[in-house]
Design a protein around this nucleic acid. Structure first.
Lengths: 146, 146
DNA sequence: ATCATATCCGAGTCATTTAGTAGGAATTAT
DNA sequence: ATAATTCCTACTAAATGACTCGGATATGAT
């Protein structure tokens, strides 16, 4: 019941992009340095985010990545689902369906999985990238004043 | 971000025990047959539940397993945590701590992980084994009347 | 006592997934 | 041209997940 590094690194990369790609393209290399994630691996992760439409790229020198939308318009749920797949605790095709599973014994547990799933999605869909950027700014402030 | 078979099978086994171990000991074999889970594997899973104190056993002929408490007193959270470990989406020692992570970049995401974690635990701690038994009874009824 | 029925328990296996690496092709600003 | 950059395919090592096996131990019934 854990997120993989894709989800964890990817969210950090997106926060990084939200902070640094306001005007300029941001290269993998610079994200990699700030976030201490290997360039190669980060590249793969950002490719997924690009494919999902949250990031756009420019190739060649001075190229790099930018967000396609404002950080307010991208939720943590968007990011995590792009990287991790659905956030359901089980693979059950009927989880969002009122049908009763064939095996009635399996069926009861479905209610549990659905409630877990709903609660996770509710949390991540109600945190925007901007919320995290704001948190980050607060943290940076409090670190400075010490 | 998935539960393993331990959690899924284990929850079904516990529901089975809640229904069938009211008077008699219930053998691995009989749970295995009803739930279609291999005896060997089920044995390992129930060992975990026993270790966690939710199940007790009697060895030898006519032996088997029983719940140690009433189904009302065992939550789905108790069961899942016994089988899966904590239900946090990341391994972060500071997740339940107000400390700031050393790497400030990592820290912001911690708020996300904590909120996910809290919401999952809130859901599973508020569903008791008895709730699921009741659901099961309802399902069985509606299946009968078709 | 013996035997069938159970749990207990350590070890081993096989497949899948995770978490990357490596290396080169394609693109573009300077 | 060249340096910087994304893009893309293939590969690998380690960890995890999902089991199986076989034998030891315990116990009620005959």
């Amino acid at each position: 019941m854990k997120l993989s590094t894709k989800g964890r690194y990817g969210l950090r990369a997106m926060i990084d992009l939200a902070i640094h790609s306001k005007e300029n393209q941001v290269s993998i290399k610079s994200i990699s340095e700030r976030q201490e994630i290997s360039e190669n691996y980060l590249e793969r992760i950002i490719a997924l985010l690009k494919k999902a439409g949250y990031v756009k790229s420019t190739r060649g020198a001075q190229g790099g990545y930018m967000l396609t939308k404002k950080p307010e318009q991208i939720s943590v749920g968007n990011i995590l689902r792009a990287l991790e797949g659905d956030l359901n605790p089980v693979d059950c095709s009927l989880i969002n369906d009122d049908k009763v599973c064939l095996e009635s014994g399996l069926c009861v547990t479905k209610f549990v999985w659905k409630r877990i799933s709903d609660s996770i999605n509710d949390v991540v869909d109600n945190i925007s990238l901007q919320d995290l950027v704001n948190e980050q700014i607060e943290i940076d402030k409090s670190q400075l004043s010490r």
